[in-house]
């Protein structure tokens, strides 16, 4: 028997999430109960979510007697290189957010933009020059709009 892994795992995560939230609901001790209390509505939603997660688990097991066409098509359109590129971009954004408070908005943004463009696009010297100019211009415009016009205190 084959299982549609993505659905199965997601449903399990949601089940665990539901159990965790239910535990938090039980831990809440309000001073007084007004209109059903603070966990009245969340408990209803958690109950529905758990029930639906079980249905999804059932569907993910039951439906796949043979091939799982969705999963195969997706893996074919998603080669290793794209996967690396995708998660490198996420990592780069995370680094950008981490370094922005101590490096400052302008240097961090310029570095992020140039690095991201180099990662995603061609890296000939002419391209890199364009990336630098675009990054500087975009950072400047954003700084002017938010920092000067809207007087937002940027890091």
């Amino acid at each position: 028997m084959k299982v549609k892994t993505g659905d199965f795992v997601t449903a399990l995560i949601l089940l665990l999430f539901g159990a965790l939230l239910f535990q938090r609901c039980c831990a809440l001790r309000p001073a007084c109960i007004i209109a059903g209390g603070p966990v009245f509505f969340p408990k209803i939603i958690i109950g529905i979510m758990v029930l639906l997660s079980l249905v999804l688990i059932y569907q993910s097991v039951e439906r796949t007697g043979g091939k799982v066409p969705g999963a195969k098509a997706r893996s074919a359109a998603d080669p290793w290189q794209t996967l690396v590129l995708r998660w490198s971009l996420v990592g780069l954004v995370a680094i950008y957010l981490l370094v922005m408070p101590w490096l400052g908005y302008a240097p961090a943004t310029i570095l992020f933009l140039v690095a991201a463009m180099c990662m995603l696009g061609p890296t000939k010297p002419r391209n890199i020059a364009i990336y630098c100019v675009v990054s500087g211009a975009v950072t400047g415009v954003l700084y002017y709009v938010f920092g000067v016009m809207l007087t937002v205190f940027l890091p």
């Binding site: 943004t109 809207l150 937002v152 890091p155």
Partner: peptide, 28 residues
Amino acid sequence: PRYILYPVILAMCGIGCYALNNTMSDVW
């Protein structure tokens, strides 16, 4: 090209979320 556009969009979104409450937690 999208390899220029998408990093710019990410930077714009990031700064836009920061400007909402002047806090990095919104960007995270």
